[in-house]
Design a protein around this nucleic acid. Structure first.
Lengths: 151, 151
DNA sequence: TATTGTTATACTCTATAACTATA
DNA sequence: TATAGTTATAGAGTATAACAATA
């Protein structure tokens, strides 16, 4: 009876199968961009989620925590700490909601607005870097197709 | 001096700014697909990362932990538990590496191969669902553009 | 009775330092 | 000296249950 030959080593890993799945590709692409985001936004002391929150408040002054949670798929308990932290940094204020005593309207402070003008400019540069290999048309196509997946 | 008017409430949240960023869209799309993946793969007892690991072993028998880590951007310590768990379920075996005494070659067992044939078929169905709103051409374009971001 | 915001808490995911055996 | 695999551990991220105040 012949001995079982030793299993050969893998020289080059074949990723063909996974690379055919949209989910795998979307996740890999998201991780690369988020990693760049983390590094570039560090100077502002903002993580991606902080940037998203502040940006939504920036463009929707008076937005409530509940609306932020629904928009960004964040659980309410997990937003509490972020809001408190950003409030402690004087980047936002919590004001009484005009017609719902339970809710609180969120607004950027003057320094919060200043920070976000800079941060959103940086985000645009980062966007150009990420899409450096894409034409303007391809970039628009990519965003349109991604939105078809999740909207 | 007139009283400051109360800040108005936000009726509809404007997400225009964030929706113009590739990273935001890629992450949202990835989360939607991964969520569907989690639900569909639950019957196999596989999380997305388990599926990725087993799939790579399936298509690269003899692959090492180190190669898996490099391919999937996993830290080695975080892979140890996954491998052990999959080995305990008799889905894979660890065999001596043919030409490196430090390394271990990973192989699917017969039941591991059976499971992955089913799981990969399910993944394909899930892929069709995710891309339900896309034409075949759009799906290929999406994957091609995503790979331009991260490869 | 339902919803907003909150606390406390647990669970998962990810990252780092340090060790061993081998190259 | 460097690398593969491992252990222990810490930190970040995410989820659920339950409560007070208001609708």
């Amino acid at each position: 009876m012949p001995e079982k030959p030793p299993a050969p080593a893998v020289e080059k890993v074949k990723t063909t199968y996974l690379e055919g799945l949209i989910g795998y590709n979307a996740r890999r692409a998201a991780l690369v961009i988020i990693d760049a985001f983390l590094q570039q936004m560090a100077v502002y002391g903002l993580r991606p989620v902080d940037f998203s929150v502040l940006s939504l408040i920036h463009h929707n002054p008076g937005i409530t925590s509940r609306q932020l949670c629904a928009t960004l798929n964040i659980q309410p308990p997990n937003l509490v700490g972020m809001i408190r932290s950003l409030e402690n940094r004087s980047l936002l204020t919590r004001q009484p909601h005009p017609n719902d005593g339970r809710a609180v309207g969120l607004h950027l402070t003057a320094s919060g607005q200043e920070l976000m003008l800079d941060a959103e400019r940086t985000a645009q540069e980062l966007e150009s870097d990420a899409a450096a290999g894409l034409t303007a048309t391809e970039r628009k196509t990519l965003i349109r197709l991604l939105q078809k997946i999740y909207l």
